[in-house]
Measured scan of single mutants.
Amino acid sequence: KLLSSIEQACDICRLKKLKCSKEKPKCAKCLKNNWECRYSPKTKRSPLTRAHLTEVESRLERLE
């Protein structure tokens, strides 16, 4: 599967780190437990900047 097509777990399953069936409108866990089942939009991760990478590398060197 391509990364862009990976389905996201519902908010509660993601928060509780449960295996989500990803069914809509309610996944199996939410249906069974009568929880409100919501699927928040995916958040875009910002790409690493060179400055951040350099900072992490220098912190790693100090720890070694």
Rank of each mutant, 00 (worst) to 15 (best):
L18R: 03
K29Q: 06
K29W: 01
K42M: 10
E57G: 02
E57L: 02
R38H: 13
C10G: 00
K44P: 15
L48M: 08
P25I: 04
S4Y: 12
L2Y: 14
D11W: 04
K26T: 11
S21W: 01
S40L: 04
W35S: 13
K16G: 00
L60V: 15
C10D: 00
L18M: 15
R50I: 04
C30H: 04
L18A: 14
E64V: 10
C30D: 01
P47Q: 01
C30A: 05
Q8L: 11
R50W: 05
K17H: 09
T54Y: 09
P47M: 06
W35K: 12
E55K: 09
C13I: 06
K29R: 11
A51T: 05
I6W: 08
P47T: 02
P41A: 08
P41L: 03
E57Y: 06
E61A: 14
E7L: 12
R59L: 06
Q8F: 15
C37I: 03
L48R: 04
K16A: 03
W35T: 11
T54R: 03
S58P: 03
D11L: 05
P47W: 08
K44V: 15
V56E: 01
P47A: 06
P41R: 02
L18W: 10
E61Y: 13
E61M: 14
P41N: 05
T49P: 00
I12G: 11
E55I: 09
Y39S: 06
S58Y: 13
P41Y: 05
A9T: 03
S46I: 03
C27D: 08
K42I: 08
R50D: 06
C30Q: 00
C10N: 07
K17T: 02
K22W: 01
Y39C: 02
A9N: 01
S40G: 08
K42G: 09
K26P: 04
R50C: 02
K24S: 15
S46Q: 02
R62W: 04
E57I: 02
L60D: 00
S46A: 04
Y39Q: 07
E61I: 10
K44E: 04
T54N: 09
E7R: 07
K19E: 04
S21Q: 03
C27I: 02
L15F: 11
A51K: 12
L53Y: 03
N34K: 13
C10T: 03
A9D: 00
P47H: 03
L15N: 11
E57R: 10
L15R: 08
A51N: 13
E64L: 06
P47E: 07
C30F: 06
C27T: 02
S46M: 07
L15H: 11
K24T: 15
E64S: 12
E64D: 09
D11F: 02
R14E: 01
C13Q: 00
K24Y: 15
S46Y: 05
W35C: 06
H52Q: 08
K16Q: 00
C30T: 07
R45Y: 01
L48W: 08
W35M: 12
A51S: 09
D11I: 05
S58V: 13
C10Y: 04
S40T: 10
E61D: 13
L60Q: 03
S4C: 12
C20G: 06
E55G: 09
H52Y: 13
K42E: 05
W35D: 09
L60E: 00
E36Q: 10
K44C: 09
K42F: 12
E57D: 09
